[in-house]
Write a protein that binds this DNA or RNA. Sequence first.
DNA 1: AGCTTTCATGGAACCGGTTCCATGCTGGCC
DNA 2: GGCCAGCATGGAACCGGTTCCATGAAAGCT
Lengths: 338, 338
Amino acid sequence: MSAIADVARLAGVAKATASRALSGRGYVSTETRDKVIAAAREIGYVASPNAASLVTGRTQSVGVIIPFISRWFFGEVLESLEFALLEQGYDMTLYNLPPASPERDRVFEFFLARKRFDGIISVGVALSEQEVDHLHRLGRPLVGVGGPIRGVPTIEIDDVAAARLATEHLLSLGHRDIVHVGGSQVDEMDFHVHSNRLRGFQAAMLAAGLSVSGCFYSAEFTMPGGYERGLALLGDPRRRPTAIFAASDEIAFGLILAARELGIRVPTELSVIGIDGHPHAEMFRLTTLAQHPRAQGELAVRTLVAELASRSGTGESTVLPTSLIIRSSTSAPRVRGT
Amino acid sequence: MSAIADVARLAGVAKATASRALSGRGYVSTETRDKVIAAAREIGYVASPNAASLVTGRTQSVGVIIPFISRWFFGEVLESLEFALLEQGYDMTLYNLPPASPERDRVFEFFLARKRFDGIISVGVALSEQEVDHLHRLGRPLVGVGGPIRGVPTIEIDDVAAARLATEHLLSLGHRDIVHVGGSQVDEMDFHVHSNRLRGFQAAMLAAGLSVSGCFYSAEFTMPGGYERGLALLGDPRRRPTAIFAASDEIAFGLILAARELGIRVPTELSVIGIDGHPHAEMFRLTTLAQHPRAQGELAVRTLVAELASRSGTGESTVLPTSLIIRSSTSAPRVRGT
DNA sequence: AGCTTTCATGGAACCGGTTCCATGCTGGCC
DNA sequence: GGCCAGCATGGAACCGGTTCCATGAAAGCT
C-alpha cells in the first residue's frame, strides 16, 4: 500500500531522510524525525522487510529445524525459541524434519539455501559435514541444540553424565538388579542421545562392579512405548529387576502404569527413575533427572544473536546442568523375602 | 552470491530471458531454457525470494498463529500444516500466542502487518473484528481452524454435536448419573470449545429428561488437570457418578488414573469417555470421540491455497466429521448393589 | 578570520528479481 | 506475395527500501 516515498512526500522530506528517521540510523534532526514518524503513523505505514533485506542482506528471520513437534522436549524448546526470537524482533520459520524424512534434501537445498534467514537453529537434528558446509557457505550462523555439530556452537546437556547420575541414584539406594529401558540404536535420533544414555548407564554399573549384559531393553520414546515394554519386562516375576532407569520421563510413565497394572508396587517392589523433568512427573511422583529445555532454547537464541552481532563465530558450545528431583518412585529395594 | 544476472551472462542471454527460463513463465525456446538451467546449476544459483516478492507481491510464505504447541491437538495440527505447506512450496512462520498473551498486539500490528505472508492461518485463536479487518486490509487471505471467525473460512468440528454424541453414548449404555469434566469458562480458549462441549452435554442430558445441575466440574485441560479433579470428585463415594464425559482425552486419562488410584474399577464402577482420539487412548483403552486434527490442518492449507489462487474469497467454512471409537472404558453401569 | 568537524539533508545508485514493451523472425493463410 | 499471428529475445522500468556521496550550514578550533 503505502511506501516510504509516500511518507517522505507527506513529511516534505526526501526518501533517504525518511528512511533514516524511521530506522534510527544516520543523522536526522529531532524535529524532522518527529515529522516523519507522525506522517508514517498517519498513513499507517509499515515497512516492507523484503525490500529492506534485499539491500541489507538481513531478513530478521531465523529458520528452525526440528524432528518432532509433539514430543515434550521438542515442544518446550520450540516454545522458548519462538518467544525469545520474537522478543529480539525475529520471525521464526519452522521446518519439521523427522528422522529419515524424504523432504530433508529439499529443505536444505531449496528452502534453507534461499537467502531468507539470518541464521539457523537446529534442534535435535545432527547435520552432516556436507550440510554444515552448505549452510556455512551462505554465511549464515548456525546454532545447534541437543548435541554437538562439528564446528558449530551447540547447547546441550551431558547425556552420559545424566544417565550415570540417574543410575548412581539407584545404586546408592542399594539396588543391584537394574535395567535400562531406552531408545534403540536403530531408530536413534541424530545426536546419539540413545547411545549416550546407555553408555552412562553402563559406566555407572561397571563402576559399581556389576555386569551390564542383558540389562538393556529398547522401547519407543513415548508413554505407550514404556508401557508395552513394561508389560513384557515385568510380566515374568523371575526376570523382574528391582529398579529401572528409563531414558525419558514419558517412557517412565508407561513403565509405572504397566507396573501398576501388574500389581507391582512402586517404589516398594520396583523403583523407576527417568530423565527430563516432565511436568507430569509430579503427578506420577516420578524421580527424574531434570533437564531444562526452555533454558536451552533461550540460550540458543542468545548465542545466535551474539553470532549475528559479532560475525566472528567465536561461539562456544555450552553444556547445561541437570538436576536430580527426588520423588517417591524410587526407594531402597525390598529385602528379599519381605 | 550469484545473481540471475550472472546466470544470464554465463548462458549468453538477457536477464529477462533467464528469468523466464527459470520461472517457466512466458516464451522461451527449449534450447535456451536448457542452456539457462545448465548455467544456473553450474554456479549453484538459488533465487532470492525477497527480490521476487518485492515485485510480485507473493512471498511463498504463510503465517500461522497458534495458542499452544505442546497440547496434543495443536501439535498435530501444526505438524500437518507444516507438511502440507512445505509440499505446496510455502514456508511456515510460527507465532505462538497463548491466551491473553501480552505479545498479541505486537504480533498483529508489527509482525503480521508487514507484507511478509501470502496468507495467514489462525489455529484456535479467535480474531476480533478489528483484527480480521486489519488482516483483510492487507489483502491477505485468512483461514481459521478450530472455530468460526466472522467472514473467514474456517475448518472445525461441531463441538456441540460431538459432546452430545459422547454423552448419548453413555446414556445409551444406561447411565443416568453422569458428570461432565471440562475446561472452565474463565480460561476459555478463544473459540468457545469449552462452553460448546458443555452445551452439547447439557442438551443430551435434558433430552433424556435428566437434570444438569451440579453435573459440571472444571479442570485444567491436561492429564494432571483431570487427575486432580478425579481425586477430588471420586474421593467421596456418595457423590460419585457412574460415568464421566471428559472434554478431552488428556483429562480422561487423568480421571482414569485417579479412579485406579482410588481403587475404582473402570468401566465396571465408572465409565469414562473423552473427545480427541489421542494416540495414547489405545493404551488407556479409552472410548473417545475422535476428531482428526491432521485432516483439519490439511484442509486448512487446501482452503488457503484455493483462496490464494482464486483471489475470490469464495471460501466456505467446513465442519469435519468426528468418529466414535468404542474401547473398554465404557460399559453399562453396575446394577445397584452388585 | 579561516579552516576543519559535525550535523542535516537530498539525489541517485543499488539490491535481485519480474514484467512491460519493442523488435525481429518465422510460418500459416488468403 | 503480403499480412498477421505467434514465438523468442533484449532493453528498461519497477518493486521499496538502504546507503553512498555531495552539498551546505552551523559550530569548534587555532
